[in-house]
């Protein structure tokens, strides 16, 4: 573990803009993310949340703007100036990406142990016992029983799949993790358990996270900061509690007031 550097941001987005042809995906998003910080991106469907997440995680190239990342050695790197192998290496070591649909993030035909071990083998782990021990440890941390290690995710419930996906991403001890609606499609009690787990792990490992969600409850529970998006633009940003308790923009006010009382 490197000593956390709290003075310089981990990730800097500057003027991120993406047009799909003439269609606006996301305009002029700028922010800084520090180590161990969790930021939520909220907004309705089509507001550009997912576009922003894909831009940040280098899955799509921005029309303009830049993303700068502080590498483990402390140097700042412009992600789109990096070579593709270096970018892909970053994506599977220092980063994680949790999909809403675990089928996209997991290899459904490969056992849970293989799923967790893949990243280790990708960075050169060649000792079966070590890989298996690490995988077992991680399954334990995400509350999956050890005797399920050789089962494929096909035999897992939705909540277990999502937890397995998280384990698979965290096994290389990333510093930044992207989550796209991590609790979408799960029932309320499973959601609560998953959120609990996420909050604990993120805090323990001091991982920075960017969580895209349309669920303000998720945002409030997980995040330190929040960005509200509408029509491809960030309309409001700030500390989560501040924004949710005292929303300035009419749209945010609408969003907050549209939560059903518990």
């Amino acid at each position: 573990m490197t000593t956390p550097d709290t003075d310089t941001p981990l990730l800097i987005a500057k003027g991120l803009t993406k047009y799909y042809g003439r269609q606006l995906g996301c305009r002029d998003a700028s922010f800084e993310l520090y180590e161990g910080e969790v930021m939520a991106v909220v907004g309705e469907s089509g507001s550009g949340k997912s576009t922003l997440l894909q831009l940040l995680s280098t899955q799509i190239e921005p029309s303009s703007g830049s993303v700068t990342y502080r590498m483990r050695d402390g140097s700042l790197a412009d992600l789109w100036r990096m070579s593709e192998p270096a970018r892909r290496f970053l994506l599977r070591t220092d980063w994680g990406y949790v999909h809403q649909d675990p089928q996209l993030g997991l290899r459904m035909g490969v056992s849970a142990g293989g799923n967790v071990g893949e990243r280790l083998m990708a960075v050169g782990a060649r000792n079966y016992q070590d890989i298996r021990a690490t995988a077992t440890d991680w399954l334990g941390r995400v509350e999956i029983p050890h005797d399920r290690i050789d089962d494929t995710p096909r035999s897992y419930s939705g909540g277990m799949r999502q937890r397995l996906q998280i384990a698979r991403n965290l096994v290389t001890a990333p510093r930044l993790i992207f989550m796209d609606e991590p609790t979408g499609g799960l029932d309320v009690s499973v959601q609560a358990r998953l959120l609990d787990l996420l909050r604990r792990i993120v805090a323990e490992m001091r991982i920075a996270a960017i969580v895209v969600t349309h669920d303000l409850a998720v945002a409030r529970l997980l995040s330190n900061r929040i960005m509200v998006m509408k029509g491809g633009e960030v309309i409001e940003a700030g500390l989560t509690d501040q924004v949710l308790d005292d929303p300035h923009q009419p749209y945010t006010q609408l969003l907050v007031s549209s939560i059903l009382p518990a």
């Binding site: 490969v110 142990g113 071990g117 893949e118 083998m121 990708a122 960075v123 050789d150």
Partner: peptide, 14 residues
């Protein structure tokens, strides 16, 4: 990027 090839061997052993 050949980590995946070892996943196959891992599965065999598992």
């Amino acid at each position: 990027e050949y980590g995946l090839m070892h996943v196959k061997l891992y599965e065999d052993i598992a």
